Simulated assay, not measured.
Amino acid sequence: MSDHTHRQELGRFLRTRRLRLSPEEAGLPPNDFTKRRTKGLRREEVAALAGISLPWYTSLEQGKDINVSDQVLDSLARVFRLNREERHHLRVLADPRRLALIPENNVPEVSSSLGFLLNQMPLCPAYISDSRMNVLAWNSLAFAVFGPFGTMDSRERNIIWRLFILPDYRAMFVDWQTLTAALLGHFRVMYSQHLEDPWYAEFIAEMTEKSPEFAAMWEDYEVRCASRHPQTLAHPEAGLLNLSNLVMPVQDGSGQFLHVYTPDSDDGSIERLERLALQTKEAR
């Protein structure tokens, strides 16, 4: 793993947090902030608020090789008003040794027990993904709800790629913007834990080139680790489906995740999903 890569990512993270925080939000005394040429805080203001020197903070933001104490990290988290997930992200980037990386197999395989579990949920769409957010296996109802996932080496297996590149898939999600921001935040966490994997850099570069929306949202640097992403789908056959998505890490050292979608119990989503499941069964 390259420490330089982690330092560069740390600097990028600090810079985005500095630029998104206004002087007023940081509690600075009133001044004529309208004359500023750039948005957010200046580096010297961050240094003063955190109680550290300007050259030291500048070096940190530039990705230079310096040691960072927990006290300094706590001060920066306080200045930037980081939430719990962002604080964890900051600490991992500052010291990758804090993160116990999960070893992954070179060939992503879904265990037979997981495959069996998928097929025991006939009324809940469910699938298995890896740390790159590629779909590895799914049950029949997930196929009926989300459509074909393509071959193993296809980009159609990637959840992020599908949301930005496939027009018909994207059109199903009523609140596409909120869902995509949440998933990109989760993808950012996965990326920060696998900075040594060249796949991520290649994928991000490809997505940035193909989708201006991805480029803008990736630059915004959202960090989220939420295990639930409520989704409302305007399904072409089933109609409106309100689903809650529970994401559970598979505790077998594979780095895989189990995604289970449960329908809303009050708005008819259960009945509509049941009809879709029956249609799928009869079509076999």
Rank of each mutant, 00 (worst) to 15 (best):
E104G: 05
D266K: 12
E219T: 15
D153R: 09
S254A: 10
G40K: 00
P30H: 01
T178D: 13
V79E: 00
M207K: 04
R87C: 15
T208F: 03
G185K: 03
R97C: 04
P29R: 14
R228H: 13
T180G: 04
H194I: 01
S140R: 14
T178N: 12
F257Q: 14
T208Y: 03
L101R: 11
I66C: 11
I52L: 09
S75V: 00
V92H: 04
A238K: 03
R87F: 02
E45K: 01
L41G: 00
C124S: 14
A182D: 10
M1W: 07
R224Q: 12
F13T: 04
Q279W: 11
F116E: 12
A238E: 04
M1Q: 13
L73K: 09
P55K: 11
S244L: 11
S269M: 06
M207F: 06
A238Q: 04
E209K: 13
M248K: 03
A181T: 14
L258R: 11
S69E: 07
E45S: 01
K210H: 01
N105M: 14
K35E: 05
R43S: 04
K210E: 01
S112I: 11
F33Q: 02
L241V: 07
F203L: 12
V174M: 04
E44L: 01
T178M: 05
A100K: 12
Q193T: 06
Y261F: 14
A100D: 13
E25F: 03
L240Y: 06
H6M: 07
R42W: 02
S140Y: 06
G253L: 13
P212H: 00
H229Y: 10
A283Y: 06
A142H: 09
K210M: 02
S112Q: 13
L82P: 07
M248G: 02
N105Q: 15
W161Q: 01
R98S: 04
D130M: 05
E209V: 05
A144I: 04
G63C: 08
